[in-house]
């Protein structure tokens, strides 16, 4: 396995990957092994979303679809949500222990930004709450109430939606965020 992996990943590519992620070469090879276990064949081709969702570390995550969509380089069309190896590596790098707080926060922002308009509005927040608590965890009314409360707390400029700055402001109040926004692979 290791032999064929290192055949597919030549030294130069590894160097490049090292530059762009928080991994060492050995860890990159490990990530690649995991990628191949999911069914990926080479660097060039990509996995369908449901293939990636088979990953044990993602399987139970309520935001798994969002994660795939955020990290996928295919934003439109038939291959929407497909994950290439680079996307996969990027995902694992962001979720690794080495990634800094702002890197993690900016991706968390994108994950919670369901409609992708660069702001967390009330709808985004309610969707997030639904993911967090499950369908029957909270009633529609409670979700709306909580979303309003969040906006009341964190929306500093009064435009009824959270920009990234405001989001980061909230995150900075949670010192544990770096430890929880993490997937060990």
């Amino acid at each position: 396995m290791g032999c064929s992996s290192s055949q597919l990943l030549d030294a130069e590519t590894l160097e490049e990957y090292q530059d762009c992620t928080f991994f060492t070469k050995r860890e990159i090879i490990h990530v690649f092994e995991r990628y191949r276990q999911l069914g990926g064949k080479s660097l060039e081709d990509s996995l369908a979303m449901n293939q990636v969702l088979d990953l044990v570390e993602l399987k139970e995550n309520p935001f798994k679809e969002r994660i795939c969509l955020v990290f996928s380089q295919f934003t439109d069309g038939e291959k929407k949500g497909h994950i290439s190896f680079e996307d996969f590596l990027d995902m694992m790098s962001v979720f690794s222990e080495g990634a800094t707080r702002d890197v993690k926060a900016s991706y968390a922002f994108r994950i919670y930004d369901f409609d992708g308009d660069g702001y967390l509005d009330k709808k985004d927040l309610m969707d997030t709450i639904e993911c967090l608590c499950g369908k029957d965890g909270l009633s529609e009314y409670e979700r709306e109430l909580v979303a309003d409360k969040i906006l009341e707390e964190a929306d500093l400029d009064g435009d009824h939606r959270l920009s990234y700055v405001e989001f980061e402001h909230v995150i900075s109040r949670a010192p544990d965020f770096v430890n929880t926004f993490r997937i060990r692979i």
């Binding site: 967090l132 707390e153 995150i171 109040r173 929880t180």
Partner: peptide, 21 residues
Amino acid sequence: QIDARMPFGIIVLASWDYSLN
């Protein structure tokens, strides 16, 4: 974690543990 200043924001936006599987 619940922060007294913005309890709702912290619970919703910063409390999910992504390492749970």
